[in-house]
Amino acid sequence: MNVVLRQMLARELTLANRRRSDLANPLFFFLIVVSLFPIGVTPDLQKLSEMAAGVLWVAALLAALLSLDLLFRHDFEDGSLEQMLLSSVPAQLLVLCKTLSHWLVTGLPLTLMSPVLSVMLALPVSAIPLLMLTLAIGTLTLSLLGGIGAALTVGLRKGGLLLTILIMPLFVPVIIFGTSAVQSFANGMPWTAQLALLGAFGAGAFAVSPWLTVAALRVTVGD
């Protein structure tokens, strides 16, 4: 079983590497949204600093969301997804592998990129580690929850926008807890409760999303 999962993870990462242009898009998107923000709103560093956590969070989530549509699409189109559902290895584990590798190639790079962009928005430097931690948890949660949405829309030609509509409302708690933790920290207020709630939500998503994702895949693939 472990061998299968290792092979699955290796396959996903190999494929991500060979489809590099898919990988770069969310990062460019993140960069562009964050740089348009001061241009569109205000270049005043004082004001930007107040909004920095929220802007970085929303931009990172939109960027990660952009790539979610592809989570199952390639595998659906070439037929690999059917084979995964038929495998003797539980499909939930395979799906979890896919979700984790999705995070490794989108959420993690976005998290690693966030310090540079946070400097552009004048987020206090001391808040950067917490920003990265919350973004890491938040993007992982997005990959997990988004997997359900991606599974529900995988057979549809224009699934991308629909996926956004489906997932965004579900994601409100993560945005609230994530931004609030960073903002509170930057303002010198207590922030651990938010971080704990963010972690709890992520853990809950981790526990239920593989099952729901597979249930959704059985519906859309079995159509």
Binding site: R11, T14, L15, R18, R19, H74, D75, E77, D78, G79, S80, E82, Q83
Partner: peptide, 10 residues
């Protein structure tokens, strides 16, 4: 299957 599960990038 009808879709032969051959991933083109592999």
């Amino acid at each position: 299957a009808h879709r032969p599960a051959v991933t083109l990038q592999l």
